[in-house]
Amino acid sequence: MRQTLDYLKETPSQTAGPYVHIGLAPGAAGFDIYAQELGHDIAGPNAKGERIRVEGGVIDGMGSPIKDVLLEAWQANADGIYAHPEHLGEVEDGFRGWGRVIPDFETGNWTFETVKPGAVTDLNGRQMAPHISLWIVARGINVGLQTRLYFSDEAAANATDPVLNLIEWERRRATLIAERTDSDGTPVYRFDIKLQGEDETVFFDI
């Protein structure tokens, strides 16, 4: 008998298209259908840690903001624990660590509120600096893009982060650092994602 490998092939990805909001955020598409939409509250009311706001845009190769984008954020809580059965530890009641981010369709700017995640211990025992994983889909994007947002006020942790250190070009690591400003109350981190150009954001095949 000839030996065979019985693996299946992953279903090919296709673009989310311009109307992704109908499926994932119908309220933003302009109609009300579900008793509750998912992904509006990343951290929930009981989360410990510092409340923050992230603001940004996704910029195409012509320098224009992408107005029909949708992002998903995935993060650990302030103790560095993910709300998932494979990650040992407790999260606060109501903490999911996941949310959806929809831009203003006229400007392409988006914003989301959450708590700042803690450093995460990877399965091999290594510490990863605090970060939020982002997944980006839109018309013209054939396979959802994965990147990470790190924090400018975590310079020491960022310097030893194993994922940032895999990026051979030190200059490119800066594309993953969100810049903190404290003005009134909630700290704001600015994170612009550039799909092309000299300061193209680093994306991961992960």
Binding site: G61, A76, R148, D205
Partner: peptide
């Protein structure tokens, strides 16, 4: 896709705990 496709190579790495978990 022309103006929305990254041009540099993606950085490849094995899934960490941040990707083997999910909502």
């Amino acid at each position: 896709s022309v103006s929305r496709s990254p041009q540099y190579s993606m950085i490849s790495l094995e899934t960490t705990v941040s990707e083997i978990t999910g909502p």
